[in-house]
Design a protein around this nucleic acid. Structure first.
Lengths: 247, 247
DNA sequence: GGTGCCGACTTGTCATTACAGGCCTGTAGT
DNA sequence: ACTACAGGCCTGTAATGACAAGTCGGCACC
């Protein structure tokens, strides 16, 4: 038994593959198909929706990229089990709360908070035109008095008007984003590398310039794919380790 | 003036789009095309290499996904002004498959493979008594010939009898665990820090002892919470970055 | 009862064709 | 000098057809 699908809109407002992708995604996320259950074959989907296999494959490709399904040659396409998802504990979002819970004293000091124009890197990460207004935050987070994390954040000013004047001292940025601007982070990409700090960053973190640190670059977005935050952070990992849980 | 390209191999050993992708990537990474310089148009590439536009688009799609190029509708495809990055997907499965998928040549060399007694650290991570038999693997993974990852794995011998005699050369460890022992990873904890390598490890990874590396410690377990694997790994992140997707 | 092989079904790869729609430039008209 | 627009680029979308290659069940054979 399969569902009846609403017909796809052929007015060209949106590509057929995108509409099909959304229809399949809705079905998967609603839980109607359990993990590792097969999707209809490409030929079947092609018939069901009245589109070519090209469109079906384009839609499935997108779902594979989003890790909602996986494909096995010769067998079919299957719903990806949610357990392969990954959660970052110990990121800027929520890390303060986690640490506080474990009885540590977390303080966050705002070093700089300005309005400016997006440079090339920021524009690319946030997917906005170079020169568009962004709010920049430079903050130092301490755990039990020890410098732990130095983070520079850029947010499109359009999404967070007036943020450059909000007093964040010891407040969670994500709390502010949520309460003041209704921003709900949906997902993020992060890149991690081991780096040496600049002289200035080393001083703030109270380490020497030859101490290896974790450098983290990140871009986060909303449900509708709008990029709302780009940051790069330096992490002292000599006393506190960076934890990743995979479930 | 364009280069002359070696003809693509049509023996079906490798898909045409992958060969083309590699050829273009080599050109980009060698720096012959500067950032934001255009690639030949799809039609031109199609002629140059004697393949259909389908193949060209497949190759370009992969390069876009690897963030080596970006495309602008109506204009063309351009070299992305970024450093190369390797995708590490934070799933319980190994990274080798993901890398292979993106057309990198992944080779894994087993340096040591022995049966021994669990030391204190291993016993704690695996939750077994100290002194219980464990199989230890020390492996060096290369990506496109470059040393990339040095990993030391310990598994309780009870769960993987005879593993110390299985030839793993270029085989995925997780594949072997699955097929030979029916081991299905359910979840894992990982800790990441920035560290310097020992003299021996530095030599294997072909870096100096003052190169900061990513150190990763991990323990993985089955659905029933049995710990089956503990490892610690050293990652070169100077040329390639460590990627984590959060969904 | 086991084994091997065939055929049906699946996804992967590739070619070809067509048109829509964005980008840019040259040119004709003002 | 300026504008409007046509036409030639480009990528995006879509249909269709073909074959390769992996999976799996069933059937015939031993």
């Amino acid at each position: 038994m399969t569902l009846t699908y609403p017909p796809l809109d052929r007015d060209g407002a949106e590509p057929l593959w995108m509409q099909l992708m959304r229809a399949l995604r809705a079905e998967i996320e609603s839980g109607e198909r359990g993990p590792d259950r097969p999707l209809p074959s490409e030929a079947e989907l092609s018939d069901l929706f009245g589109v070519s296999r090209t469109v079906v494959r384009e839609a499935l490709r997108e779902l594979v990229q989003q890790r909602l399904i996986y494909k096995v040659k010769g067998k079919g396409a299957f719903v990806a089990p949610r357990k392969t998802e990954l959660r970052f504990v110990g990121s800027t979002s929520g890390s303060a709360d986690d640490l506080r819970e474990s009885g540590r004293r977390v303080t966050t000091q705002t070093i700089r908070q300005t309005l400016g124009e997006a440079d090339e890197r920021e524009a690319a990460l946030l997917r906005i035109p170079q020169g568009e207004q962004v709010v920049r935050l430079r903050r130092l987070r301490r755990v039990d008095g020890q410098p732990w994390l130095l983070v520079e954040t850029a947010l499109p000013a359009r999404l967070v008007p007036g943020l450059e004047r909000v007093v964040l001292e010891n407040q969670s940025l994500y709390d502010t984003l949520r309460r003041r601007y209704g921003i709900e982070p949906a997902a993020a990409d992060r890149w991690i590398e081991a780096v040496f700090p600049s002289r200035e960053d080393a001083a703030l973190l109270e380490v020497s310039t030859s101490t290896p640190l974790l450098g983290i670059e990140s871009v986060a977005w909303l449900e509708d794919n709008t990029r709302f935050e780009a940051y790069h952070a330096l992490h002292r990992s000599d006393q506190t380790r960076f934890y990743v849980g995979i479930r």
